[in-house]
Design a protein around this nucleic acid. Structure first.
Lengths: 296, 296
DNA sequence: CATGAAGTGTGCGCAAATGCACAGGGGTTT
DNA sequence: AAACCCCTGTGCATTTGCGCACACTTCATG
């Protein structure tokens, strides 16, 4: 029972009653209809129709086939409607991944997105590992660092997160304000992962000995808490600094570029586009906080 | 949502996970699989798969399609099994038609047939009009007269019904026994239909003036009753004569040939063949009554 | 009875779908 | 790290399947 097209053709002949009528309805030549039926009958070894000059009348076998094909036709029609809409409408599920670092910033964006598109079920995956878009693990990924270069991914530059070097008031009282020359006399807070791709970490490793890093955390929230607790100097997004004191002029290398990445196969879909639009719209308010600094 | 074959192809890709696997399972080249999917996606405007070097993973749309195609595949498989069996098994309905004349003879045959094939629903249609096999009105027809010549019908010679000219004892007492020369002085019983194709009626019209036919009936049972009632001379199958008296030597032209006719499209099916076998088997006992005559 | 319309059936030529071969990419194994 | 295997993807040759045209039959109509 391969060659579903032949089943469809036979079904149309039952419906229309004649080969010519079925050919018209199918938009093919009536010779094609005859050939399909002949082939199907030969393969099954059963006559589906009795032929006469006024048309085709189905045998019991033909009627049986038509019943099954009828429901199939209905189901496929419904399916077609669903699928055609799926590309244009914003429905179904939207899977977004990001590093845990960005969780707090992204959650409100997704919440707003869901308010705008109540039919979309949102799944937000945060994990240290990089999710693979080509395996369907996510529709949209927020990546940080250098421009992604996976061939089938489309990456758009997103916000650039301005990072500053901050210290608590307590720390400054005890250790003073660092300069480029006195860096190695200070205590730093950094990421636990030695191979972190965070740009400020790479700057840190280039300008500061490992021994100067006295506190390592695996996530940025712990890092921020450590800085606030006076453990040492640490990098934070400037807008998250709160009442911390910025202790050094920002370096261009610190800037954390981020990217919105989607898989090329899904990029054009309305749902993904809507998600990207939501992200971009929310980006306006992210880092207009270049002035919110407390020092020096 | 035309091109059901492409749906089937896509379904197999979801099942197998790879284009190559689907191609193997389908028995086609993997390039064909790719083309089918590309075409279907283009027509729908929806991506069904995310492509990567290790295989195809379905999108939501692809998974949706696979679900409905799965049930379709199941239903078609079942259907295929049913239909393939239908040609070889003896099931379903068997429609037989005959002239009302033969009803009494055929009914026991069909009864026996149904005992042998309890799964077959039998419909026996008797009517003066000729049922058209090519419109699916019947599977088997018992026809009398000259060999049928419809192009799409296959006709097999069946029993030859020996007809005799009979009279009741009362009639003979009153009118005597006819000879070829005194035919027009007798009273005859015949068919009402002037254009009857029954061979003895044509012989009658050739040898006897219309005025000699004093009683016309539309069915043979009425004719037989008239003969038995002494109305006149009449033709009966010799084995149905009972206690009537055969009054003339049988003429070869009187013999009523019958034919078993089937439509060529159905003739090879096991059901029709079984029905024909039943008819032929029963024919043995039909007219071995050439001896059962009472006169002269 | 002649005529026309509608439908089936078939040979022929062409276009579209298929198979083939090869290139390229990614993961796994030794 | 290199070799290998499996998968996708694409240009080219081939063949299958399709459309076309015509013949034939049946039925309806005047």
């Amino acid at each position: 029972m391969e060659h579903w097209d032949e089943i469809r053709t036979s079904y149309y002949v039952v419906r229309e009653g004649t080969v010519s009528g079925a050919a018209d309805a199918l938009g093919v030549h009536h010779a094609t209809v005859i050939r399909h039926i002949d082939a199907l009958e030969a393969r099954l070894g059963v006559k589906l129709f009795q032929r006469h000059a006024r048309g085709y009348t189905p045998t019991e076998a033909g009627a049986d086939l038509a019943r099954v094909a009828q429901t199939t036709d209905d189901q496929f029609s419904q399916l077609g409607g669903r699928l055609k809409g799926q590309g244009e409408n914003v429905t179904g599920e939207l899977v977004v991944t990001a590093l845990p670092t960005f969780a707090e910033r992204i959650t409100p964006i997704l919440a707003q997105f869901q308010r705008d598109h109540p039919d979309v079920r949102v799944r937000f995956l945060t994990d240290a590992r990089v999710f693979r878009l080509e395996y369907g693990e996510a529709h949209v990924a927020l990546r940080a660092g250098a421009a992604p270069e996976e061939p089938d991914n489309v990456a758009q530059p997103y916000v650039s997160l301005d990072m500053g070097l901050f210290a608590s008031t307590d720390y400054i009282a005890q250790f003073g304000i660092p300069t480029l020359e006195t860096l190695d006399q200070h205590r730093f807070v950094g990421f636990a992962d030695i191979r972190s791709r965070a740009p400020f970490m790479q700057w840190l490793e280039a300008h500061v000995p490992q021994s100067a890093i006295w506190f390592r955390a695996s996530d940025d929230r712990s890092m921020a808490a450590a800085v606030r607790g006076g453990v040492g100097l640490g990098f934070l997004p400037v807008c998250d600094a709160g009442d911390l004191n910025e202790v050094m002029e920002r370096q261009p290398e610190w800037v954390a570029k981020t990217w919105l990445v989607t898989h090329v196969d899904l990029h054009r879909s309305a749902k993904v586009q809507a998600a990207l639009a939501a992200f971009k719209g929310a980006a306006q308010g992210w880092c207009s906080c270049e002035d919110g600094v407390n020092l020096p």
